[in-house]
Amino acid sequence: MTIRVQDPGLETTVQDTGRLGYYSIGFPPSGALDSFAYHVGNALVGNEPGAAALEAVYLGPTLEFTEDTVIAVTGAEIPAFVDGEEIPTWESVAVSSGSVLSFGQLRGGARPYVAVAGGIDVPLYYGSRSTYTLVGIGGFQGRALRAGDELAIGSDARDPKAGRRLDAGDVPVHPSTAEVHLLVGLHSYRLTDDSLARFTDTEWKVTPDANRVGYRFRGAELEFVPREQPFGAGSDPANVTDCGYPVGSVQVPGGVEPIVLLQDAVTGGGYATLGTVVSVDRDRLAQTKTGDKTRFVAVDLDGALEVRKDRLDALDRIRSALS
């Protein structure tokens, strides 16, 4: 039982919950950028929670199924079709052998997910099926899909069933200005007070340099507090002595064009981290596209933990309702 890739779309990759535990040796986790859409997709098709799914961006892939199965499209607002007939998204749908899934033009968000009953069966690499394309490991041959690829379907299905649907009230909306919560630190002291305030006051625009490694933004210039260059740090005022970069951390090389690192992050380097996006809000960033706006809302550690708990509790509630 396989999926034949007729058209790969753009940077469509196999992803799961990620390859955790190797960050300290320079391996970012990879995994689905929009974790909510990924988990709900698996719950809809009745998969075990960590089953691998497909993540696409901007353009959906065209996929042919060689056996009857159950699929669910979640994530971005994008029309999806089976054999030319539009299907509901955020709902499990039965497809027959020979059926072709295709996509129309994206209306909102950025990344659609395709979950398949049983999950995508690629070899586990260091405990995960996620693709990390920068070094070519994991997923399907370590790369984005190409036309002609044949993906095997796995056996992670617990209870495949068509017609499971996410409540309309739980379907995420993707406004063209996303709000994400930011825990300020580790090196926020390097920015002047004015600039730190400017960072959270600015509507930042997503540039074309926005992928799974990180998102680059434009919108304002930030100034650093004058200092004497410390031993081991570069000469850019944004430089500090090398350190690890949290996934979701924000750096501003040269004081212009801040970068938020995502699941394929570079794991460390010499730029000051002015804050870190709360993990569950990376879902929202993942659904912004080039030209969209983003605002960063400062929270303290308790606030960040609360945002995370609320979102994970909601996911638990949804999973039990769908099981």
């Binding site: 753009l10 961006v57 901007y58 340099d209 926005a210 992928n211």
Partner: peptide, 8 residues
């Protein structure tokens, strides 16, 4: 059209 450092 260039996006995400790739050209389409």
């Amino acid at each position: 059209v260039e996006v995400m450092k790739t050209f389409h």
